[in-house]
Design a protein around this nucleic acid. Structure first.
Lengths: 208, 208
DNA sequence: GCAGTTACGCTACGGGTCGTAGCGTAAGGA
DNA sequence: TCCTTACGCTACGACCCGTAGCGTAACTGC
């Protein structure tokens, strides 16, 4: 979560875990109220009841702080087994969409991605803190579909990985683009249309 | 381009169109060198050889300026007829991807979209300046496919519009996500895999 | 207990950007 | 020539950044 992880027991006063929680909570609150561009470190410190220097002792700057603050939202993602691949895909889509309805996520996600185009370490942080958490759901859905016999197990491991990457980019990309660029709601109707398009494509790929 | 358009002839000294061009050019150069977050109005003004006040006379702020500066890149988008829907889709994908290779576009696009989540007027500006220019290609590709008989003409106009919106979000979203979030290249191989997935989905929708 | 070590709150600071006001000058139109 | 608008320039208060320095708080090992 923070930059340094206190492996084993260290000497000296330990870092306040309560401060960690308060800071991340304050960051989300500030994102809701002010949005990414007007969020300042001073404001977060004030909201958290913490000195500004304490923030800089744990995070290099606004980018890293916001990534960690938003990352916990992606821990809530779950994918109950709905019995079919179609229902599971629709579930994933609606989960992503629900997350993007939250103003903290809306304003922060694209902003940190934009920053990451010029900052490799930030990009890796986003990947492990956010993207991988999303991707879990896609991989889980595939496993279930294979167990059900809806998708076949692939022989070539690297080809399977490429395929999963493709499907993940299609699902996540479409939902994000619909929500943030087109600024149209991802409701049940859209999710249904998207799901059938994707599944027909996958079915065709299985056949061909 | 600027905020006010001089409809009809106005009295007084006209705005320098050379300054317009110099400012937008300087903005793109600054995006390349500094990136979105470190780009400042003062820097752009200096690069353009223009007073800072001149920028504020034409654009409300950094957001609007960058949108206009990047928008012209999307005018270069073209879609030569490659003879089949599959080839045309692949063409669109590679066009989008090539645009996102440019550092000005990479750093600016996601940033202004992030800003637009809290600024409706900015969102509309992005739509008309950027998104609609992309969407043209998708609509053009559909028309050609219909003329070739690869896709059937749809009766319900609103359903057709929803469908085009869906396909646009899928294509643009997938390419953007692949490029900026997954940070993997959109090469011919990926484009080919994506295209076949999409087309199989469309083919299935035509049949079902 | 006592020293050693690390975290915290607080204050203060130089450096930078923002967006605007005010002024004199330049470039067109009636 | 008068009127109107645009331009360059300077200066300004407000704000945020990221860091340094200090005294104090909390926890560990002896």
């Amino acid at each position: 979560m923070s930059d340094t992880d206190p492996k084993a027991t260290r000497t000296g006063r330990p870092r306040s875990t309560a401060a960690d929680a308060a800071i991340l909570e304050a960051t989300r609150a500030s994102l809701v109220d002010l949005g990414w561009s007007k969020l300042t470190m001073s404001d977060v410190a004030t909201r958290a009841g913490v000195a500004k220097t304490t923030l800089y002792r744990r995070w290099a700057g606004k980018n890293e702080l916001v990534v960690d603050a938003v990352a916990v939202l992606f821990d809530e993602l779950e994918l109950p087994d709905r019995g079919s691949l179609a229902a599971d895909v629709q579930g994933v889509v609606l989960q992503f969409a629900a997350l993007l309805e939250r103003p903290e996520a809306r304003t922060a996600l694209m902003a940190v991605v934009a920053e990451s185009t010029r900052d490799d370490s930030l990009r890796h942080r986003i990947r492990s803190a956010i993207v991988d958490r999303q991707k879990r759901l896609v991989l889980l859905g595939r496993e279930r579909a294979q167990a059900r016999g809806e998708l076949r197990y692939e022989d070539d491991a690297s080809a399977a990985a490429r395929n999963a990457d493709l499907i993940f980019d299609v699902i996540a990309g479409a939902v994000v683009h619909r929500t943030l660029v087109s600024a149209e709601p991802v409701d049940a109707e859209w999710a249904s249309g998207f799901t059938s398009l994707l599944l027909l494509g996958l079915a065709g790929a299985q056949a061909g």
